[in-house]
Write a protein that binds this DNA or RNA. Structure first.
Lengths: 137, 137
DNA sequence: ACTATATTTGCATCATGACGCAAACACGCA
DNA sequence: TGCGTGTTTGCGTCATGATGCAAATATAGT
């Protein structure tokens, strides 16, 4: 199954000359940029809920979390469900109480993967700030 | 200026009993959750522009980037300006051409800082999935 | 089965954002 | 100075999302 002949070379290919050409180039960053995740984290109210649950270090019920902010409990319910769909929180029902907890490991992994994907694309210093913009380099 | 007496103890304090109490607790995650950054990355069109510029590995002009997607160049101009305001891209004017480049280092640093902030809040395994939800623990 | 509590859902409202088009603007060059 | 190209801005339109309230639903306990 694994390649037995030579082994994939870990060399960094020359970057595409233009952004248009970059479109066709596959890179780890393609899978690491998750719009749904970022959208879930793009609202201040949701971020405050995430911070509360994160700092609490345990699963929190909808009602509990609703005490952390000024919006209606129905709004909190919707926010938490959205965060769970995006993978930020896990959800578990215990009786009539629904408890949401931070997905510590999964989140950290996603963030590290994205950082690594970005790092792998970082060019030599002389190119990073763009010596030219006409595709000559 | 720096504390000369004892040195801040690096011990992990017991987490707040309820999310409501967590509100008053300061933690690195408070500064690491940047809604503006996440909002900038929450749009699919913008993400495709970011990926193009990232893979290209150099500063790209507005016109160049506009060739990467199907939206109007004016829309691309707005997207890139927004990404620059959020710290995702750097912007530099060269004559009448405006070139945007990925902020590789700054982005990676933000992502790592957030991951570290999350990691620092991760509780012992038995607590993470919530043994109770009434503030008893 | 009835009741109380926890959560979700339907609906209306208001704000924000993505988009295209056209006009305005900026700047290098003749 | 006038022209051409690259970029931004003004404006209207359409879609999406955040919010609150009330009603519906779920479930534990009596």
């Amino acid at each position: 199954m694994t390649q037995t002949r030579k082994r994939a070379r870990p060399v960094k290919r020359r970057p595409p000359a233009t952004p248009r050409l970059a479109l066709t180039r596959k890179a780890p960053i393609d899978g690491a940029l998750d719009a749904e995740l970022f959208r879930a984290l793009s609202d201040e109210t949701r971020l405050s809920l995430v911070a509360c649950i994160a700092k609490c270090g345990r699963a929190c019920s909808v009602g509990e979390v609703a005490l952390c902010c000024s919006v209606d409990v129905s709004v909190v319910s919707r926010h938490l469900a959205l965060l769970a769909r995006a993978g930020v929180l896990s959800v578990r029902r215990r009786g009539r109480v629904v408890a949401y907890a931070l997905q510590y490991d999964e989140l950290c992994e996603s963030l590290h993967a994205l950082a690594a994907a970005i790092e792998s694309l970082k060019p030599a210093e002389n190119l990073s700030k763009g010596a030219c913009n006409d595709g000559c380099c």
